[in-house]
Nucleic acid binder design. Structure first.
Length: 390
DNA sequence: TCACCATAGCTTATTCTATC
DNA sequence: GATAGAATAAGCTATGGTGA
């Protein structure tokens, strides 16, 4: 009976819980004796990292659908009347369809079933020598490696017993998926609310937007909402610009988002045309963060959108105090301070927003928030209904 | 011709690692 | 501890085979 090492991470506790429910005092023995559980443990590291973590479902679902077929066809409870080794196998199309029905699985490919799960398992456990998924390319039938489901451990009385972990694997993946979904739900709920509120109940909508600008909301929500508000606000303002004095024309200020919030860590968040202003959304007034970002653009002036209730003056002087502590030399501090073009705090955002509402452009802000939210989470309307249905 | 399946190459984003 | 670059993972697209 060989033992496999278990690397602990935040989701490991959830796996332990499930194992204890099924195997009581032998939970840990089962865990250590099963490379399949070890593999799952390894593949669930991202579970509690929140919605910022990239989704990982392909190989999990490959496991899931084949084992689900094993259970449904009655090979665990004996209803199948034949041993698994005599089973004709699951059809690719059925497995493929099933994995796409699962939450977040709508766009999964065949890779997990065909190669990637087996390859990765082999990489993690090169000595096991048994691929989790067994298939016959010619007949296009799929089986699970039953040996990996049967876990033998020695009880305290010296007897060897074999446990089948098929149901446990399904349960672990279910909990993993539920955890991943929970991370998305709060935010999605907010987005749906916004979409509905805008048209039917402008007053509530206004209230809602203001709530999303409070210092305690999620950083991504804050960035999206502040973008939507500022874009609408600047869109109402114009400048006169042209090649020569005689040929100037009036142009509206347009604010662009330079990338997805999550994919743009440390980068510049918004850019304004035609004035070429840079905007950086930030939560902290930690001086090193400001100056780090300023360094990136060689002290090009930046407007900071700060998730803070303090006034622009307060923020600016707080930064100055920190800057002096860090750089000592007054002249250096001055050049850095000059690079802070403007500070927009929560109060400024709310003011900008009420200007927008006053001029009847509330819906514009609402729509922008919904669009940006969907981009943020790779959400198309199709998928949205997909998830709702589950 | 079409549906279905397999495979490979490519793109993008995340995580790891070496270096200072 | 910050950073850049390498390594890795997941998903998309293209392509080709097969059998009805």
């Amino acid at each position: 009976m060989s033992k496999f090492e278990i690397t602990n991470h935040s989701f490991t506790a959830s796996i332990n819980q499930i194992l204890e429910k099924h195997f009581g005092e032998y939970a840990n023995d089962v865990f250590e004796a099963s490379p399949l559980l070890g593999y799952l443990n390894n593949k669930t590291k991202s579970a509690n990292r929140g919605s910022k973590a990239r989704g990982a479902f392909a190989n999990h679902y490959a496991l899931y659908v084949v084992i689900e077929d094993y259970l449904e066809k009655g090979f665990l409870d004996g209803k199948a009347n034949i041993p698994y080794s005599k089973y004709e196998g699951a059809r690719f199309s059925d497995l493929f369809r099933r994995q796409r029905e699962l939450p977040f699985g709508a766009k999964l490919q065949n890779h997990g079933l065909n190669a990637r799960l087996n390859d990765e398992f082999k990489k993690f456990y090169p000595t096991v020598g048994k691929p989790p998924i067994v298939r016959d390319v010619e007949s296009q039938r799929y089986w699970f490696q039953e040996d990996l489901l049967l876990v033998q451990i020695r009880q305290k009385n010296g007897k060897d017993v074999t446990y089948n972990i098929a149901e446990v694997v399904i349960e672990i993946i279910d909990v993993y998926v539920a955890t991943k979904r929970a991370a998305f739900e709060g935010f999605l709920e907010a987005c749906r609310k916004i979409a509905e509120l805008g048209k039917e109940n402008p007053e509530h909508a206004t209230e809602f937007v203001i709530q999303q600008l409070m210092p305690n909301v999620d950083a991504r929500v804050f960035e999206i909402v502040s973008y939507a508000v500022l874009k609408a606000r600047y869109g109402q303002q114009t400048v006169w610009i042209g090649d020569a004095k005689e040929s100037v024309s009036e142009e509206a200020l347009i604010l662009y988002k330079t990338g997805r919030t999550n994919a743009n860590d440390g980068g510049i968040d918004f850019v304004m045309k035609p004035l070429g202003r840079f905007f950086q959304v930030t939560e902290t007034i930690d001086v090193s963060k400001y100056f780090l970002d300023i360094d990136k653009v060689q002290r090009f002036p930046i407007t900071f959108v700060v998730k803070s209730d303090e006034t622009a003056q307060q923020i600016r002087s707080a930064i100055r105090v920190q800057a002096i502590a860090k750089y000592k030399i007054e002249a250096v501090v001055e050049t850095y301070m000059k690079a802070i073009e403007e500070i927009i705090n929560v109060k400024d955002l709310i003011e900008a927003f009420s200007e927008v509402v006053k001029s009847g452009n509330l819906q514009e802000v609402m729509d922008e928030i919904v669009i940006q939210s969907k981009v943020e989470f790779n959400y198309s309307d199709e998928e949205e209904s997909e998830v709702e249905n589950v």
